[in-house]
């Protein structure tokens, strides 16, 4: 193990490490802590120049109540969910199909198709922007949840297929051969043999895609406008212009917008990290 385990060091080194840890964490999260502090302050504090001091009163409920009951925030949160959940289902489903085809079968063009999915992943969004916006308009899906979902499913399929294919590759191949000898149809092999083994990959991808899509801003701006379809990342700018310079409300809004992926991360930490660090170890 590197660096030398702290347990093998002197007592004083251990103590200073333990003391330094929380300090470093506070320093690292300082910008966030500041926002959390902002979000429980009353508006008057900012007018009086008390930005960083102790809140003159604890206004958590009134600030967050404002966000939830007197703004478009709930609408935006709902849109985010309506965009994110179908995308997760669609991208994971499509990529399991593609991953199965590319991971199990040997055929001409296999690697070529696989590399198409990988390469598409790295492309800058801007080169897709004008044509995708056009396509969405011509399908009558501009400024709709569906328009965003379709694009996100297609784009995320690239990354997810990379993940799925490598995962399926690592499964024991004799299992599939055994099923074939038994005369099991190929789609049944997918459904009854491979899919149950893919549960960890499905979970990892689901949380990752959830976070990516929830946090997307660019496509939200390109493909939607206004509260009837915009997700919370885009909505927060409208929210902020509604409450210009009301830092207590803007920070409460930001925290609300950031919370769902954070909750997802803490609930599914193991899968999340397994997904993100795919390939970091050989």
């Amino acid at each position: 193990m590197f660096p030398t385990p702290i347990a093998k060091r002197s007592r004083s080194a251990q103590l200073s490490y333990q003391a330094f840890l929380p300090l470093a964490l506070i320093l690292w999260l300082l910008p966030l802590l500041a926002v959390a502090l902002f979000s429980v302050k009353p508006g008057a504090d900012f007018a009086n120049g008390n930005y960083w001091g102790i809140p003159s009163s604890f206004d958590l409920f009134s600030n967050y109540g404002m966000v939830f009951f007197e703004s478009n925030m709930p609408r935006y949160l709902m849109n985010s969910l309506l965009i994110t959940i179908p995308t997760v289902i669609g991208a994971v489903a499509l990529s399991s199909l593609a991953g199965f085809a590319l991971g199990i079968y040997k055929f001409r063009g296999n690697l070529l198709i696989f590399f198409m999915f990988i390469a598409g992943n790295f492309v800058p969004f801007q080169i897709l922007m004008v044509p995708v916006r056009d396509l969405t308009i011509s399908m009558g899906l501009y400024d709709s949840v569906m328009g965003l979902v379709l694009f996100h499913v297609a784009f995320q399929t690239g990354f997810c297929t990379l993940f799925m294919r490598n995962f399926i590759r690592a499964l024991p191949y004799p299992l599939i051969e055994a099923a074939r000898v038994e005369g099991v149809a190929e789609w049944r092999i997918f459904w009854y043999v491979v899919l149950p083994l893919m549960k960890p990959a499905l979970a990892a991808l689901a949380v990752l895609v959830f976070t990516f899509i929830w946090n997307d801003y660019f496509w939200a701006v390109v493909l939607t406008q206004g509260p009837n379809a915009q997700p919370v990342t885009a909505g927060i700018t409208e929210f902020n212009s509604q409450f210009r310079a009301a830092y207590h409300l803007m920070s409460a809004g930001s925290i609300v917008a950031a919370l769902p992926p954070v909750a997802m991360f803490f609930l599914m930490q193991k899968h999340f990290i397994a997904g993100l660090t795919l390939g970091a170890v050989k």
């Binding site: 499509l94 085809a101 590319l102 999915f117 492309v123 995708v132 297609a154």
Partner: peptide, 20 residues
């Protein structure tokens, strides 16, 4: 089978990423 499995994902990816 691989082609049947690939139709939908490849079609999506072509329409929204490669062709654009």
């Amino acid at each position: 089978t691989p082609w049947l499995f690939l139709i939908l994902p490849v079609a999506f990816f072509l329409t929204y990423v490669v062709v654009p």
